[in-house]
Amino acid sequence: MNAPSPLIEVHGLQAWYGRRRILHGVDFSVVPGEIRVIMGGSGSGKSTLLRHLIGLQRPRDGSVRIFGVELGRASERELLAVRRKIGVSFQGGALLTSLSVGENVALPLREHTRLDESTIRIMSRLKLEVVNLGGFQDLMPSQLSGGMVKRAALARAIVMDPRLLFFDEPSAGLDPVVAAELDELILRLRDALRMTIVVVTHELESAFKIADTITVLDQGEILMTGTVGEVRASPNARIQDLLNRRPRAVQVDADTYLRRLTGEEA
C-alpha cells in the first residue's frame, strides 16, 4: 500500500529577522491523520516556523507546501483556498474582542459560506458544544477565563471543519487540570473529526501525551523527528537538556544579546 502523501512539506526553510537567522534550513513533512508536536525551548524558532506554516510569513528561502500548494508562490486566491482548509488556535486565543463568543465562532462561516443565519447560528453552537462551551455564545471574550478563551478559539478554528489544525502553545498559561482537558480535547478532535493536527509547544507533559510524532527544534535547527519513545531515548545532549530542563552551559552576555536583538550580529 502506498504511504499517504503529506499534507505539509517543508524543505530547506530559512527565516531571517534582519540579519539574524532564525531557521537554518528546516525540513519535515506531516502526513494525514497525524498529531505532530513541534517542541522546543524559547527562542528555538518554533513560533517563526508556525507563522510560515499558516501563511502569515512567506518563505524567502526554502519552501512550504500545504495541500500541495507552495505558499511562497501562491496567488491570493490559492492562499485563500488553503486558509479555508486550515484552522489555527492562537496562544492567547486571539478572539475578536468586539464580537461575542458566538459571533467569533460564526465569523468564518459568515465570511466564507452562503449559509443562512439560522444555520450559521446552529453550526457555531454545535462547535461550542464540542469544546464544552455550550450556552456561552452570548458572552464577550473578556468575560471568559483563559482556558475558556482557548476553547472558544478552538471552536472558531474548527467551525469550517478544517482538514488541518494548528495549535500555538495550547496549554501555556493554563492550570494543569485545564491543560489536561485541552489535551484530551485535541485527541478527541483527531479521533472524531479525523483531523491532522500540528501543535507547537514547549510543555513536555502535554507534548508526550498527545503526540504521534515529535519534531524537536533547537536554535533554528531540527534535532530529530521521532515517536515519543524515540525522543525520550535520544542520546542527543541538547534534546536531553530540553527533556531534563537543564540550563544551557553556554551563557550569553548582555552585550552579545543586545547586539543579536538589534541585528548587529548575525
Binding site: 499558516i54 501563511g55 502569515l56 485563500l80 486558509r83 479555508r84 486550515i86 489555527v88 492562537f90 496562544q91 492567547g92 486571539a94 478572539l95 475578536l96 474582542t97 468586539s98 465569523l107 468564518p108 465570511e111 466564507h112 478559539a153 472558531r156
Partner: peptide, 20 residues
C-alpha cells in the same frame, strides 16, 4: 487604538488565517 490592540493580541493574524 482598535487596530493597534488587535495587532498586539494577534487578532489581525487571526483574521488573516481565517481568510479575511
Amino acid at each position: 487604538a482598535r487596530i493597534g490592540s488587535m495587532s498586539v493580541s494577534q487578532e489581525i493574524d487571526a483574521l488573516a488565517v481565517i481568510g479575511i
